[in-house]
Amino acid sequence: MSNSRLVLAALATVLVVGACAPEPPPEPPAPTGPTAEELERMRQDSIRRAEEAAAAERDRQEELARQRMERAAEAARQSLRETVYFDYDESAIRSDTEQRLRAKLDILRNNPGVQLRLEGHADERGTSEYNIALGNERAESVMQFFTGFGLDANRFSSVSYGEERPAAQGSTEAAWAQNRRVEFVVTAGGDDIGR
């Protein structure tokens, strides 16, 4: 600022002051910025927002975790329900069947409340009476696999359907292979899996 402008400003002040009676100096103009209260409120608000965001994130993470758990539980339930297959006239556990049974074994160990019904089936070849016996043998074979690993036999029940409930229709090797099986029904504790 130049000196001449300062002088002009000073003159103007004198003129104004000189024009009026001596009066008390005016109140200082109301501050245009936030008040202390407002500042405090804003501070609280921002804390609240941050907390809410954190809570939402926490919820989101929890929901994700819950979904992951649910997916894992559903996967476990599905794995428990997964059908296993057998060779013609055989009740011996073959390697793909053993893999599936081992997966079930882990789930059964982690969820001691779970109980299963083992439903044995046979393909149409052979007499229907013999096939009831064969389906029973397959269910027993699966049960023995589990109890052999120390699971309580009371957690399992078995029923044979023989050749009466084929999964696949037709008299082909492909259909027969689908029908030589043990199916699994969760009869107790299914809702507690993963909790």
Partner: peptide, 10 residues
């Protein structure tokens, strides 16, 4: 019928 001799030979 008996499967005493094995399941493949009732």
């Amino acid at each position: 019928l008996s499967n005493r001799f094995g399941i493949t030979t009732p």
